[in-house]
């Protein structure tokens, strides 16, 4: 095998590995979304039914519902990062014509996203670190607060990873566009 072929084969293995990882990760996200959506809904319905029908004050349902919702919010945000589903003002992108300009634009957007996602990750890390210094708990449930804060880390790290992915993609199509022209 030539050196180029080896590199290509290695690249193929890497992409294959990443594809499998992405599939497993997405499955896990879907499972998380289904479970948390169910908990958010059922906790509130239970609260109302117990209060209205049985006159029984079931404790901690708001807390449980909010805890599940935070995981739901962030899992949804990760999915949006993965599917490029975040809201965009696409005036500029829509006005670009050449494939080279489009790829360059994608590269810039992905690079800026990566930088900003790094800040996001830093802020989340600071929140968690401070939470270690001054631990809190969720009243009534008596669960440590970081359990509710952890999904923010998931969102920030995923945003970084997908921004990196988009950068690589944009760089690849940029080189392709350069070769073509």
């Amino acid at each position: 095998m030539t050196a180029a072929a080896v590199t290509q084969a290695r690249g193929g293995i890497l992409i294959g590995f990443l594809t499998i990882f992405d599939r497993i990760f997405t499955r896990a996200l879907h499972a998380l979304i289904l479970a948390t959506s169910l908990i958010v809904t059922v906790a509130l319905v239970t609260l109302v039914v117990c209060r209205y029908v049985f006159n029984y004050p079931v404790a901690g349902m708001h807390e449980l519902s909010m805890l599940a919702a935070l995981w739901l919010y962030m899992a949804g945000a990760v999915l949006a990062s993965r599917n490029n589903g975040h809201l965009v003002v696409d005036f500029l992108a829509g006005s670009l014509r050449s494939s080279r300009a489009k790829a360059l634009h994608q590269l810039v957007v992905a690079a800026l996203t990566l930088i900003i996602a790094c800040f996001f990750a830093l802020w989340v890390w600071k929140m968690l670190a401070w939470g270690m210094k001054r631990p809190q708990s969720i009243p009534l449930l008596q669960i440590p607060l970081w359990v509710a804060q952890l999904p923010f880390a998931l969102a920030a790290l995923s945003a970084m990873a997908y921004a990196l992915r988009d950068m690589v993609r944009a760089a690849l199509s940029l080189t392709r566009a350069s070769k073509e022209s």
Partner: peptide, 14 residues
């Protein structure tokens, strides 16, 4: 709070 109001005989709610 819940424990106290409940001990006072009220139905409590969140």
């Amino acid at each position: 709070f819940t424990e106290t109001i409940s001990a006072m005989g009220y139905q409590t709610a969140t």
